[in-house]
């Protein structure tokens, strides 16, 4: 079981990770997401023992690292999958996977499972990006670590490959039954692959919860904005609903907000229809997404909202439309900034 308590990491005088606490159990996959330079890779390197920590405690199984007592990376029994694959170019695929193994059982198992049997005796240089990352994953899993750290494993691959490899990696991790921390900057990946999601901003963990909770009940405006398109509408919080110009909407207050609040509206919380009579909004822009249209709509006397509708509903720019809240679950209400 991985335990991180009050972890702080400094780069020279700059603090890049601030007071991080998290616990990982059994075969849980934790996604860490955040913008560039938010400290997500730094956390992985600190857990792996590749950089020193300033404060706090990291423990896994039978070791515990503190600022005074650093444990060498090779003693931590964990695996790491790198963004640039980090395959040894002078060794064959098989030699890479069996780097420190005394028998081939695990290497064979993972080479077969990840479809690499035919590439055993080639050098990594001749493989495609997706194959390289499979080899890197096989290498990590074959060494039977008690925790796996994945540092943006898909960011060097093209979009089509990302989608399938993402599930392949998740399945392999589940088959191995190893806990993992998976760092990414892709929100879609963050929401879909992991069991839990941590959102980082400037070295601080802003929220750590299930993907659904992070998306629907974000702990801050930053989390709300980072995980998907977010519009806000002003309203008055009364008990468990907010009254707005679009009517009364079920809501939960974030950080005990009261009185006047900003209510978070996702594009799929709203519906769009041709105006009956004057309507209540005007279309300002439209973006075709294949299965859907994403519209930007200016509410009369109100804010700009984003709405996603089926590809069958087309509205012209400038057209008058009727906007309604269709969601039945509670929406997040934030205190006015």
């Amino acid at each position: 079981m991985l335990q991180i308590e009050n972890l702080c990491v400094d780069y020279g005088p700059v603090r890049v990770v601030e007071n991080l606490n998290l616990t990982l159990t059994e075969d849980e996959i934790l996604m860490l997401v955040g913008p560039t330079a938010c400290g997500k890779t730094t956390i992985l390197q600190a857990v792996a023992g590749l950089i020193p920590i300033a404060q706090g405690r990291i423990s896994l199984g039978n070791w515990e690292a503190t600022p005074g007592k650093s444990i060498a990376p090779e003693k931590r029994k964990l695996g790491m999958v790198f963004q640039d694959f980090a395959l040894f170019p002078h060794l064959t695929v098989e030699q890479n996977v069996a780097f420190r193994l005394t028998d081939m059982v695990q290497a064979d198992h993972w080479l077969k499972l990840l479809g690499l049997d035919n590439f055993r005796y080639v050098k990594p240089g001749t493989l495609s990006g997706g194959q390289k990352q499979r080899v890197a994953l096989a290498r990590t899993l074959a060494h039977e670590p008690s925790l796996i750290l994945l540092d943006e494993p898909l960011s060097n691959l093209d979009a089509a490959l990302k989608d399938s490899l993402r599930w392949e990696i998740r399945n392999a991790l589940k088959v191995a039954g190893v806990p993992a921390i998976w760092v990414t900057h892709d929100q879609e990946e963050a929401l879909s692959v992991g069991d839990r999601l941590g959102v980082l901003n400037a070295g601080v963990l802003e929220q750590l919860a299930s993907p659904e909770a992070c998306f629907c009940e974000p702990a801050s405006r930053f989390v709300a904005g980072f995980l998907g398109e977010a519009s806000f509408i002003r309203g008055q919080l009364k008990g468990n609903h907010v009254s707005t110009s679009l009517g009364d909407v079920p809501a939960t207050a974030v950080d005990e907000a009261t009185g006047e609040v900003d209510l978070l509206l996702r594009p799929d919380d709203l519906s769009l229809a041709a105006a009956v009579g004057p309507g209540n909004a005007k279309v300002s822009w439209a973006r075709y997404e294949g299965a859907y249209w994403l519209y930007g709509v200016a509410l009369d006397g109100g804010p700009q909202l984003q709405i996603r509708t089926s590809h069958e509903n087309y509205f012209g720019i400038g057209e008058r439309v009727g906007v309604e809240v269709i969601t039945t679950h509670a929406l997040a209400a934030f205190a006015i900034a």
């Binding site: 090779e74 790491m80 640039d84 980090a86 040894f88 890197a136 060494h143 750290l149």
Partner: peptide
């Protein structure tokens, strides 16, 4: 740089990393 890191994380001591990764490369 990630090659030596990868070798360390796989459980190789610095001297082993030196002989098995750094020297051949």
């Amino acid at each position: 740089a990630s090659l030596t890191k990868a070798a360390r994380v796989l459980g190789a001591r610095p001297s082993e990393v030196f002989w098995r990764v750094t020297v051949p490369l």
